[in-house]
């Protein structure tokens, strides 16, 4: 019963210069069951990152609360792993020390750490890169390190903020498959933020389309593509007529929101 539950989650920022209130999030309500894969989509500035930061415990909600397994979230914790877009690796450490960072902070047995690092590097496809400095890796490989670093801690929920946003198309596709594989193998709850509609469809067992001002969940989908992606090639799925249909629908939806924002501004 380690479900992630958000109740009336709201976040209001105060602009330090003007003092004006920004309703980044307003009354978010949802329950993410253990093992579900949720992707969150929305126009820029609709509060996706804010939502993730709240769940990660980096900031505290102005109203409502988020709970994991019944406990209210009020600080960062190991049970909620984070994967950032980029720049969150420790470039002064080699790959293996990056991966076992969490274990070392727990003062785990170094020998055990070594084995776990081996195992996870294997899983994310980085065998033999343990001693490489991270800054010598390509963008895709760096995100694999970030994934391994997060997963080795065995978190209950994995939170990803546009993890593949900075990657080129081909690498991105491979990484999408990897995320699906990891989801399947570990059975973790995953919440992934993306600004790519295709990615959201491919990776989202559930999909939230958020709307801005105030940030809220505009529409929710339940999609079959993530399950299918475990067996089929992602490229084939993209040619599925249903896939295209949903994609067009969401694109129109976001397009309209953007129009609205522009109009209001």
């Amino acid at each position: 019963m380690a479900d992630l539950v958000c109740e009336n989650l709201s976040m209001t920022f105060t602009n330090p210069q003007t003092g004006a209130a920004v309703h980044a999030l307003k009354d978010i309500n949802f329950t993410l069951k253990k093992g579900e894969l949720l992707s969150v989509l929305g126009p820029s500035g609709c509060g996706k990152t804010t939502l993730l930061n709240l769940i990660a415990g980096f900031i505290n909600a102005t109203d409502g609360n988020a709970k994991l397994g019944g406990r209210t979230i009020d600080a960062p914790g190991v049970e909620r792993g984070m994967v950032f877009q980029q720049g969150a690796l420790f470039e002064w450490l080699p790959v293996s020390r990056n991966v076992d960072f969490g274990l070392r902070m727990k003062r785990n047995n170094p020998k055990e750490n070594e084995e776990l690092v081996e195992k996870w590097l294997d899983i994310v496809g980085l065998q033999g890169f343990g001693d490489t400095p991270t800054y010598q890796l390509s963008g895709g490989m760096q995100q694999r390190v970030a994934l391994a670093r997060c997963l080795i801690n065995d978190p209950e929920v994995i939170l990803m903020d546009e993890p593949l946003g900075a990657l080129d198309a081909l690498t991105r596709e491979k990484m999408q498959s990897l995320v699906l594989e990891l989801w399947k193998e570990t059975g973790k709850t995953i919440m992934i933020i993306t600004h790519s509609v295709e990615e959201a469809l491919l990776l989202g067992e559930r999909l939230f389309v958020m709307a801005p001002r105030p940030g809220r969940v505009h529409k929710e989908y339940r999609l079959p593509f993530a399950e299918r992606g475990l067996q089929e090639s992602l490229r084939e799925i993209k040619h599925d007529p249903y896939f295209s249909e949903v994609r067009e629908e969401i694109l129109t939806m976001i397009w309209d929101m953007e129009e609205e924002i522009m109009g209001r501004v």
Binding site: A56, G57, F58, P76, G77, V78, R80, G81, M82, F84, Q85, G87, A88, F90, F101, G102, M105, K106, R149, C150, N153
Partner: peptide
């Protein structure tokens, strides 16, 4: 970088 600090917090440091 803030993301490094946040990552470390999430890793239990």
């Amino acid at each position: 970088l803030l993301s490094k600090i946040r990552a470390s917090h999430s890793l239990g440091a």
